[in-house]
Nucleic acid binder design. Structure first.
Lengths: 205, 205
DNA sequence: CTCAATCGGAGGATTTTCCTCCACTTACTG
DNA sequence: CAGTAAGTGGAGGAAAATCCTCCGATTGAG
């Protein structure tokens, strides 16, 4: 996977990126022909590199996760929990957008598919780091104690998922803004208590 | 449309409801056979009542809009703008979930399809009422002035849209909670300024 | 009880999606 | 700057999903 010819590698990357966008928008069942078209690449190239849909889905998830986990590691070293958390989220907006397809991979997990070793490892590390950041922010009194790491995860997935058929530039560019609003809503301050129960990360498996 | 036999009316309603859920989840191109199946009704029944996909999409949008506009009218008479706004949102969560299909109808508008008279009328009234509620909340200093009615509309559509293949009970039931977090984030209080520009409702047409 | 309205869903037509195959192109290597 | 192994695109047939008609069975209304 590392020793590809330059053009091959380029096309592979394009495919993963296009697939991430399309999966995020339309779910993991989006037609592969369209992935190829969006990537500006022939279908033959797609099927040569990814023998079946699952291989592509896995590649998308792992690629995104790798970067997101990188961001989370960096955030763990931040001065305080809250700024670590917001820093992580902001840094990851782009990757999470790709990684919204990640939530689909969770869906696949629910659907009973096996994850390969690296995938599972990354997922677990991300979950641990996220929980740690949230705990820290809670401890500092910077974050509403009723808001859980699971709430955060779900809200990120929801808000970063593009609306189908939307005006891409317009709504897409607004993601950072909307995420900022959501983060504000998670901040500690004297509001009414939230309805319902916190989502635990474990509930999301 | 009013003088249907009892069973016919019941089935029609079931169809609209099932279609709303499916359109919200998978976009307005979701297979009609599955709409029928989810509604517990034969395909024949579906095609008899809605000659083509567009008729069904229109019915979903108008039905949802009617109820949402009703809520908005009620909210316009609230004691203050902010409670009117939150009241409206909370009351509409169920309908907006259905009406997430509404955002698809916006998408169809973008795609260049004509809306019938009632649909357009409802849309315009909702936009006006929403803008009015937000203006009032702004005037009272209860809502962050940088958050626009368009921001609100888009965030609602995003957060209420179900994740595909998700654990339906779990994530579905959390909608109210997540909406509450978003509303908190829109409240006036001394936070950092939001990045980006406010979304105007007119930008969304 | 009658019957016109309605229902369900089998199944053929149509469209979408998959995915192989190969003649042509391109990056690397000596 | 060839030679060549690796890579490429996309036509097109197979397979699957989706559409949507049709009709014998069922059911609500008077």
């Amino acid at each position: 996977m590392a020793d590809l010819r330059a053009d091959a590698r380029r096309n592979r990357d394009r495919l993963v990126e296009a697939a991430a966008a399309l999966f995020a928008e339309r779910g993991p069942d989006a037609p592969l022909d369209e992935v190829a078209r969006r990537a500006g690449v022939g279908v033959g190239t797609l099927y040569r590199r990814f023998p079946d849909r699952d291989a592509l889905v896995r590649a998308v998830a792992v690629t995104s996760l790798r970067r997101v986990v990188g961001n989370a590691r960096a955030a763990a070293g931040a001065a305080d929990g809250w700024s670590g958390l917001t820093g992580f989220v902001r840094a990851s907006v782009g990757d999470l957008r790709l990684a919204a397809g990640l939530s689909m991979t969770f869906a696949r997990t629910w659907a009973g598919l096996r994850l390969d070793a690296e995938h599972e490892e990354l997922r677990d590390e991300l979950v641990a780091l996220l929980q740690q950041l949230v705990d820290r922010a809670h401890g500092e009194g910077a974050m509403r104690p009723e808001v859980s790491a699971g709430d955060l995860a779900v809200l990120l997935a929801l808000v970063l998922r593009p609306l189908p058929g939307a005006p891409p530039a317009l709504v897409g560019g607004a993601a950072e803004r909307h995420i900022a609003i959501v983060l504000e809503g998670m901040r500690a301050h004297p509001g009414e208590p939230l309805p319902g129960d916190p989502l635990l990360l474990d509930d999301l498996r």
